[in-house]
Design a protein around this nucleic acid. Sequence first.
DNA 1: CGCCCGATGCTCT
DNA 2: GAGCATCGGGCGG
Length: 238
Amino acid sequence: MVLPREFFDRPSAKVAKDLLGKLLWRDTSEGKCGGRIVEVEAYEGAKDSAAHSYRGLTPRNASMFGPPGHAYVYAIHSRWCVNVVTEPEGVPTAVLIRAIEPLSGLELMARRRSESLLARRARQAAEGSGVFAVIDQTILPRRQRERLPTTSLPMLLRPRDLCRGPARLCEALAINRQQDGLDLTLGRELWIEEDAAFKLTPRQIARSPRIGISTAQERLLRFYIRNSQFVSGKRERI
DNA sequence: CGCCCGATGCTCT
DNA sequence: GAGCATCGGGCGG
């Protein structure tokens, strides 16, 4: 069942917690892929100094002010991250989807991630900037001494690393600013489904401060599945 | 493993 | 012009 608008028309922290275990699906001309949501963060708008909407409406964050159940996609450090807008229209709160456990379309996701990674390496090499350079007509780390890549593509693209982190997730699912504002309740292009067979007990849900923010670090608005290997950032040892 | 650092481009001041 | 809800590579332990 595709999650309906009412699901998202609730306090963002509640929506965040309830999104754990749900299935995120992406369908494009390249095919369908998706997986289980294992890590999210709530952003609480005007009362949350870490939220993009804290200082009011701008062209970038306009989707956060729109109706619940739509996507808010933004760029950070030349990468994309996707949120689901929550609470009634005009209340600019949202839930950042930080990681999924890939379950379907792994090949498609790996292809997109490897293409992006190789393109980034190639651009760095071509521009003579960054870590990579063209050495013997091959793109290698500039300071590579033995001329063998230390971090191989298969290593980076093992299932665990396909969608672990908000920007990797968007890369694997081909989500970018074109999906900003998209209605996620239609069950087309991008949507979230209930998985009736999958249940989480309260003990399996962990919460922590949000990752990578400087303000409001005392707020525990990051939620993740405690024993999942597909969660980004720090997890407690099992 | 953990920590540090640079890439890179968009957004808002 | 500064800041950023990130990522991947290098290096030290």
